[in-house]
Design a protein around this nucleic acid. Sequence first.
DNA 1: CAGGTGTCAGATGTCAGACATCTCGCGGTT
DNA 2: AACCGCGAGATGTCTGACATCTGACACCTG
Lengths: 224, 224
Amino acid sequence: MSLQPVRRESAVEAVLDQMHAQVASGAWAVGDRIPGEHELSARLHVSRPAVREAIRALSHVGVLEVRRGDGTYVRSAADPRPLLRRVERASLRDVFEVQLAYDVQAAKLAALRRTPEDLRRLEGLLRNRDAAEDPADFGEADSGFHLAVAETARNPLLTEAFRFFRHRLRESLSAVREDRDLPEGGPERHHAVLAAIAAGDAEAAGRAAALVVAPTLRALEDVL
Amino acid sequence: MSLQPVRRESAVEAVLDQMHAQVASGAWAVGDRIPGEHELSARLHVSRPAVREAIRALSHVGVLEVRRGDGTYVRSAADPRPLLRRVERASLRDVFEVQLAYDVQAAKLAALRRTPEDLRRLEGLLRNRDAAEDPADFGEADSGFHLAVAETARNPLLTEAFRFFRHRLRESLSAVREDRDLPEGGPERHHAVLAAIAAGDAEAAGRAAALVVAPTLRALEDVL
DNA sequence: CAGGTGTCAGATGTCAGACATCTCGCGGTT
DNA sequence: AACCGCGAGATGTCTGACATCTGACACCTG
């Protein structure tokens, strides 16, 4: 008989779990007003600050909305926690593959929606990237170019998703691979992305974007 | 001179803003232990429960990690809040475009990684989808198929991202378009996705997946 | 000397109680 | 019908006290 670690859950985590379950099950539907803090405190047999901490966490991620003096409402039943938990533990390959999906979609949309000013900006950023010699400068310039492509797509949601995942990716890389740089397609592949975007060719832009990341994924397959 | 609404920020929101700024600026770097609750309370001139609420919110999204008895550490500087805020306010088109990126990437990876059992499962789900008559059943079967494709990709991060965004998409749709169904590619396009996945042809699978969503995006362009 | 145990300071976790401030609904007045 | 004032009920914030945990350090034993 093997002994299992005893995990004692905090009061706030227990409240969070119950609240999530209420929302997920539809007992508290989107638009509903949930019971007040005092009532939840009494019902759940925890202190009111514990209830408040749970509510604060859920309002921070957009699940609940607190209206002072009025009550607390359910704004969304889409719980981001599984995603956020997963991104904390995701392998580099997995993050790169998601990031690739963004890169490709951003390039396609950029090709459809770019303006002359966008193109000038992208050209400048690519020049910066080509000219960067110091690894920190290079990383910055590379990120700057990719992010600008995402912004050229004119889908703010895609841009924010891109930004968040890229930031996480950078952290995972520095935590694990301080000593080793992963390869990425060189200048000519980046120029090919820009050329396809300039030509307004979405399919070519998507293919070119995929070619930029391909060496990275290949290197990850070799290492893992 | 126009008068502006006075927005009074709560103590907890002010603490959150300052903590975010500390993390984003690198003053509190990943791995660092931040000052304790009592110290922050004294320094920020707010009560300790206010500090606790802020810390709870940040630990909920993975930015901070609380170790009872030890202290509170910075786990990640990648703040998901801009993304989560954006997804709350995103247009249907924007969400669909991000979802499309997932669908395409999932189909491509599924083509590379599917097993015979995956294929049997996908076939069954597609049969369910074809047979569904009631709109609620149909929506469920459709989601089931798309999600199974994402799972076949064997990238858990992609699957969770897919799940979250699709849930949000569904909520946006029911909030705005209770009375109107958006078109999606019919059975033959879904079967084409499955055929490409079965054939192990990633490019064809990606193209087929894009064709499934194309009518939806076209309809959105017409409406918006 | 190495390993184990106990103690303590400092950290988070939780609570009760009190008061401040806001919102909304209702009743009364014009 | 529109407006105003009031009050109940809601969230917002604080103080102070105590509980529980962690890590570092000192001490003891083999």
